[in-house]
Amino acid sequence: MLETHETLKEGTQPGGPGVDKPTLTEREFTVKERKQWQMALRRFLRHRAAVVSLVVFVLLVLFAFVLPYFWHYKYTEFVSLCTQSNGLAGPCSPSLKHPFGTDSTHDMLAVTMRGTGQSLKVAFLIAAVGTGAGALWGVVSGFFGGFVDSTLMRLADLVLTIPSLALAAALAHKGGGSLVLIGLILAGVAAPYVARVVRGVVLSLREREFIEAARALGASNTRIMFRHLLPNTIPVLLVNATLLIAQGILAETALSYVGFGIQSPDTSLGVLISTNQGAVENQPWLFYFPGVFIILIALSVNFIGDGLRDALDPRQTRERK
């Protein structure tokens, strides 16, 4: 490189005084280097609701997984009850000591933290496993096409026709309400959705020239699928994963609500709502706090997904509307 540069300077410079200019190609243009993710980030940051939601979501995660270490009650710990207006001992209403109040045995803040944590764990599991399995499913289906494609897609249709909650309830009940099992089952039901979306993306990617280029280089099918096709579906996967988190939270809630979810003594937001629905009249804090958290999670994750979709959409340009 340096050599060619030298040759140009010495050998091919036109004559005439003062034309020797050593820095002829060294001047940089003033456009800032801009990576794809930086542009995506910029677009994301422009999406107000998504940014606020991201902050809320991060706070929720901290609330669920970090705050328990600093809170002086554990969710398993029994607390002393309060004297109520009728003179009997009963659940305490919210106070400085118990910001979320208590139920008949536990500090509600500690329990809500635990419940939020467990619900989030299930949701993350669903998002991770569902997206992963769906991506694999969709890539294989879209890449091979033909018989493989029809078989896999008919299978997806089949899974989608099954009333998923009923299936999950039945299976989860058999498994004794383990968090991992519930997550896996709900992920399995979610995977066909992802598979369909991914397949669509792969079908169009497959016709792109860089895939033909990979084939011309001698890449095997596996390599083309996992090294070239899959990475290019990441924006779609990311958006889908966030939406799955929201759906997962709601599905877990529903499952627990009908009693097939996580079993006590462990808890989740769904369990809390279900057990405390009778207390809406007398101890409304028992019901509303977990309820607000469910809504917060579902809303914030949905907005984040919206923001991501806008940010990663390749049709977006730098031009200002």
Binding site: P14, G16, G18, L24, T25, T30
Partner: peptide
């Protein structure tokens, strides 16, 4: 001609062909 046309965003002062021009001098910048 080496290089590529400049981006028309925040174009620096001077002749826009300077970075690709073999006879450019200081005045061109």
């Amino acid at each position: 001609i080496k290089g590529a046309p400049p981006s028309l965003l925040n174009l620096p002062p001077g002749c826009p062909f300077t970075p690709r021009c073999p006879i450019a001098e200081d005045i061109c910048d």
